[in-house]
Design a protein around this nucleic acid. Structure first.
Length: 768
DNA sequence: ATGGAGACCTTTTTT
DNA sequence: AGGTCTCCAT
């Protein structure tokens, strides 16, 4: 065969991974080895070989990854056919299919997707209805159990039959989880709704129970590609297996060393056992790292070596040695934040590094607070990814609930959400009566609301009238759906529902009103710009026609993840995110913070080897995000649950090879280099920077931690007892002056009155 | 009904 | 510590 121009841009193993398009193949792609490149080139190559785009199913973990890949393929082959590749997340591709085939599994095309909040809210209601103690039946526990079951393809009946599951719940003192599960599923079903896990569960059920469906989709998807295969769970594994059984053209790409979603049911064995599932499978290893310096690659390798279970591979790089990794020790989290911010300030100032090329990573979202405070203080632009997402906000959920309800009247969670918002005199008691009444009659809450007279709900007549009024309003929205696009609908609903009036009536709700506006903007953008390429299944003809209807907007929004947020390339901001959120990304400069025992590795993982190995993989992922410079920090104390905790440096620090590190002062005693009292000086900062950062003074700061914590201006009021390193204990007399330049008058026990500038004075708030 | 004070709980990680 | 939830007073 003639050498394809696509293949000529690849190294030998990449070429191998791309060009073997028939038969099963597993690509083990080490960090930074060009995994995305292989996937996109492979698809481009397939298209070039004449494979019809709609025969290709490519599954990713984020919409963003899918979008980027489509764009890259488009660029590679310069052909609109790229858009017709069935590329998307597991959830979005399968949801689309389930909508098409909804009647087969007892749903309608307009089914709702419950997000985690909706699921929790429904569970809370069920627990209440069963008169169970919500302190015993903790929603998170119940949801986790149900989610894990569904991810393993167990439905409520299977669960109730499963001795291990039932036994486990009994031992936890929660014997009725199976019963809650059953009711939860019944309610989801009668609400014409699915939760996230249902999308996978029902997709598998569709293929399992309907041979014609299996045939249809096996035939449609003759080539299956799966990205991040190490993070697939059992349900995903089974679906892929079923579809791929048709043509055996399955290509999975992943890295067992980067499997970090075990807690969510991802099973690393899916990748470890691929060869067993497909004995004829070709295994290709991508081991050359193009991303990072040698120091970083070596450090990552040394860390991951401590894990037992893995596919043997040697990641190496031709890149330069690079800057050694710096490990910084700080006395507490604000000190840690200050070290990071100072360092960022310096590199920006001295090397004109774009803030976009800098990322601060952490194990848990809560760690972002101290960092954020410091970034604000130092005027460093930043953006935090994750945390409460836009679409989880109350006002946004309210508006979306109206939208969902207009499309799917049976959506009980949406109904509950807005039936009395804005207030229309339908209280909690009435809602509960409706739900109870619906249960008795075996109908939906909506049926009752539409006709409260008929079902004899025990509420008074004015209330009944309010119910029918509400139903009429929703139906009036529904009537507009066929003729209006998402934006027109959104605009109409915002006004007609009274949401905007309610928000505008209260000046303190200004932010919320703005957020609603923002959602409308998103709807507008969707209505004007969304496009989609579909195809005629018989003729393979491309159809570019797209109707930006409200249901399509909701669909696009329901499965969004934080990673999917649009990037604004024009702004320059330091990025803050959890390590999980950073997977698949890369940055020139990376700061990994909070390398402390019980935080990273998390206290919840320390108990088992398996979970500890997952934490180590997480550390591996974190290290390998860095292209040029990696800085790792840990704090000696940290506030947790409102009280000061002493923190041992993470065991992972000891796994970093000294040859990759900057300077190490060996501790005179103790096991590892990072035994409590040792510090690593940031002499990298001293050498390169004109303006030195104040060197850390660990001894002094340890003392601070022992006495109390650094006082914030807001802590200081007259009568407050404080401690000053030089002047000793004293009592605050008064605080005066403008914020940021305040003066404190303090009466010291031994020295008498002194006036100190808060900006400079290191005042400590002693522990009681 | 509305709001405020106090209890209480949080912490992995997220599709 | 800080946010959410609950219960009590208005």
């Amino acid at each position: 065969m003639e050498q394809s121009s696509i293949l000529s841009q690849l190294n030998e193993s990449q070429k191998e991974a791309v060009s073997l398009i028939n038969g099963p193949e597993m690509v083990i792609a080490g960090a930074g080895s060009g995994k995305t490149r292989v996937l996109t080139y492979r698809i481009a190559y397939m298209l070039e070989q004449g494979i019809a785009p709609w025969r290709i199913l490519a599954l990713t973990f984020t919409n963003k990854a899918a979008r980027e890949m489509t764009e890259r393929i488009l660029k590679l082959i310069g052909d609109q056919r790229a858009k017709a590749v069935q590329m998307g997340t597991f959830h979005s591709v399968f949801l689309r299919i389930l909508r098409t085939e909804a009647d087969k599994i007892g749903f309608t095309h307009f089914l709702s997707v419950y997000d985690t909040d909706d699921s929790k809210s429904l569970l809370r209601n069920i627990i209440k209805e069963l008169n169970l103690d919500p302190k015993v039946y903790v929603v998170n526990y119940v949801l986790n159990r149900i989610s894990a079951a569904k991810s393993n393809l167990l439905n409520a009946e299977d669960y109730a039959q499963n001795k291990d599951a039932v036994m486990y719940d009994k031992e936890c003192g929660k014997p009725l989880v199976a019963e809650i599960f059953k009711r939860y599923n019944t309610r989801l079903h009668s609400s014409n709704a699915m939760d996230f896990d249902d999308i996978l569960y029902y997709m598998n059920a569709l293929l399992r129970d309907f041979p014609e469906m299996l045939f249809k989709y096996q035939n449609r998807f003759q080539y299956v590609l799966v990205d991040e295969y190490q993070d697939t769970n059992f349900a995903q594994y089974m679906i892929i297996k079923k579809i791929a059984a048709g043509h055996h053209n399955i290509c999975v790409v992943g890295d067992d060393a980067q499997s970090i979603y075990g807690f969510r049911g991802a099973d690393i064995n899916n990748i470890l056992n691929f060869k067993r599932d497909y004995p004829e499978a070709k295994i290709v290893k991508l081991e050359q790292n193009y991303r990072s310096t040698q120091n970083i690659v070596n450090a990552a390798n040394a860390v991951i070596k401590n894990n037992n279970k893995q596919i043997p591979k040697t990641v190496w790089t031709d890149n330069e040695q690079g800057t050694p990794i710096t490990v910084l020790s700080s006395s507490n989290e604000s000190d840690e934040a200050a070290l990071v911010c100072d360092s960022i300030f310096e590199i920006e100032h001295n090397f004109h590094v774009n803030y976009n090329d800098i990322a601060i990573l952490y194990r848990t979202n809560m760690q972002s607070r101290a960092l954020e405070e410091c970034l604000i203080r130092k005027h460093i632009p930043y953006r935090i990814y994750g945390g409460t997402s836009f679409y989880a906000r109350k006002e946004i959920k309210d508006l979306l609930a109206y939208c969902r309800l207009a499309i799917n009247h049976y959506d009980e969670e949406s109904l509950r959400r807005v039936i009395n918002y804005p207030l229309r005199g339908i209280g909690e008691t009435t809602v509960e009566k409706i739900i109870a009444c619906a249960g008795e009659h075996g109908v939906r809450a909506w049926d009752i609301i539409e006709n409260p007279q008929f079902f004899e709900v025990p509420v008074n007549n004015p209330t009944k009238e309010r119910l029918t009024d509400f139903a009429a309003k929703i139906k009036s929205f529904t009537a507009l759906l066929p003729s209006k696009d998402a934006y027109e609908m959104g605009k109409h609903i915002v006004f007609a529902s009274g949401i905007i009036a309610a928000l505008k009536a209260d000046p303190s709700e200004k932010d919320r009103a703005d957020n609603v506006e923002e959602l409308l903007d998103a709807m507008k953008d969707f209505s004007e710009n969304a496009e989609e390429t579909t195809f005629n299944e018989e003729t393979g003809e491309l159809i570019e026609d797209f109707n930006p209807t409200l249901d399509r907007f909701l669909e696009s929004v329901a499965l969004l993840t934080d990673a999917d947020q649009k990037e604004d390339e024009n702004v320059s901001q330091v990025k803050l995110m959890t390590i999980h959120a950073a997977k698949g990304l890369e940055f020139d400069y990376v700061y990994i913070t909070g390398l402390e025992e019980n935080l990273f590795p998390s206290s919840l993982s320390i108990g088992s080897r398996k979970e500890l190995e997952e934490e180590r993989r997480l550390f591996y992922v974190a290290i390998t995000r860095a292209k040029k410079v990696l800085t790792i920090t840990h704090a000696q104390t940290r506030y947790r649950f409102g009280s000061l905790q002493f923190c041992e440096p993470s065991r992972f620090l000891d796994e970093l090879p000294t040859s990759c590190l900057k300077t190490i002062e060996k501790a005179s005693s103790g096991k590892g280099a990072f035994a409590k009292k040792s510090t690593i000086e940031n002499d990298w900062a001293n050498r390169t920077f004109e303006k030195k950062t104040a060197p850390a003074k660990p001894k002094l700061e340890l003392d601070i931690a022992a006495i109390g914590r650094m006082a914030k201006p807001s802590d200081l009021k007259p009568e407050t007892r404080i401690y000053h390193i030089k002047f000793g204990y004293g009592t605050v007399q008064r605080i005066e002056g403008p914020t940021g330049d305040q003066k404190a008058t303090i009466f010291f026990d031994t020295l008498g009155e002194k006036v100190l500038l808060l900006k400079f004075a290191k005042l400590i708030l002693p522990n009681k």
